[in-house]
């Protein structure tokens, strides 16, 4: 895989490092020269207008999308086409989707156990114990034997978080986790995410919840047209944005 010359030396404690990342959908240049380094325990919020490439970026980090140029290193493992490496990275990276993507034919408990059973090869009892532990943490343990279709959106998203946590990942990726939820359910999901952040989880979160960004983010990244326009701690980002595009975006989502 080709590397570009813009690569800056990643910090030694970097959990994720991305250098010169470029991606095209057909002829459409969707990610342009992305450089990003995420430290262990760092909490990052990525925002930007729709179509700016923010979801694509985090989907590249666990190889749900293939990139054409650049280098991605997650927890010391360099992403290549090698299936074993990709699976190794995925075991370290949990992901939560906009539309939950729970398995509708499996119970909540089985959703949380399936990868422990087939990937980590844990005994059933142990897998269930871990699953219940995390379901407890997202406050939905009492629904463990129901099916996803029987739960509300907010409950489903919390199960999805628990499912990802069951693999005990080092990094959690959130792809607009609250965008598909009714307003009254957003808080229950955000609360879980805040707790997770407070426990020291490394998090990359694509979201428009600016309140969340202000409370927990160490850094806010603004993307537009497939590139990182501006990144700063929330304090600076919200109060003294530098780029005109950032200002315009903030005025659109914060202004009434």
């Amino acid at each position: 895989m080709a590397t570009t010359n813009t690569a800056s030396a990643p910090a030694d404690d970097a959990m994720i490092s991305v250098e010169g990342l470029n991606k095209w959908y057909g002829d459409f240049h969707v990610l342009r020269d992305i450089d990003l380094s995420v430290a262990k325990g760092e909490r990052i919020v990525i925002c930007g207008p729709s179509g700016s490439g923010k979801s694509t970026l985090i989907r590249c980090l666990n190889h749900l999308e293939e990139h054409q140029q650049g280098r991605i290193v997650v927890d010391g493992v360099t992403m290549t086409q090698d299936v074993k490496r990709i699976e190794q990275i995925r075991r370290n990276v949990g992901m939560v989707f906009q539309h939950f993507n729970l398995f509708p034919h499996l119970s909540v408990l089985d959703n949380c156990c399936i990868s422990q059973t087939w990937v980590q090869k844990k005994p059933r009892a142990e897998a269930e114990k871990t699953a219940m532990e995390f379901l407890e943490r997202v406050r939905i343990a009492d629904q463990a034997h129901k099916y996803p279709g029987q739960l509300s959106g907010g409950q489903q998203q919390r199960v999805a978080i628990a499912r990802a946590l069951c693999m005990r990942p080092e990094v959690m990726l959130f792809d607009e986790p609250t965008s598909a939820l009714d307003p009254e359910m957003i808080k229950e999901v955000l609360d879980v995410m805040v707790e997770l952040a407070q426990d020291g989880m490394t998090m990359l979160c694509v979201t428009h919840e600016m309140g969340f960004a202000k409370t927990v983010a160490d850094r806010v990244i603004f993307m537009d047209q497939g590139q990182i326009i501006e990144q700063a701690p929330p304090e600076t980002f919200f109060n003294h944005p530098e780029s005109d595009r950032t200002k315009l975006f903030l005025s659109q989502i914060l202004g009434h």
């Binding site: 800056s8 910090a11 470029n22 095209w24 057909g26 002829d27 459409f28 240049h29 342009r32 020269d33 990003l36 380094s37 995420v38 430290a39 054409q68 850094r219 047209q225 497939g226 590139q227 990182i228 326009i229 501006e230 990144q231 700063a232 701690p233 600076t236 530098e242 780029s243 950032t246």
Partner: peptide
Amino acid sequence: AEMATRIEMIEARRP
């Protein structure tokens, strides 16, 4: 990590 702001936009390139 660095906290930079991009002033010049990157133009789209051919794949």
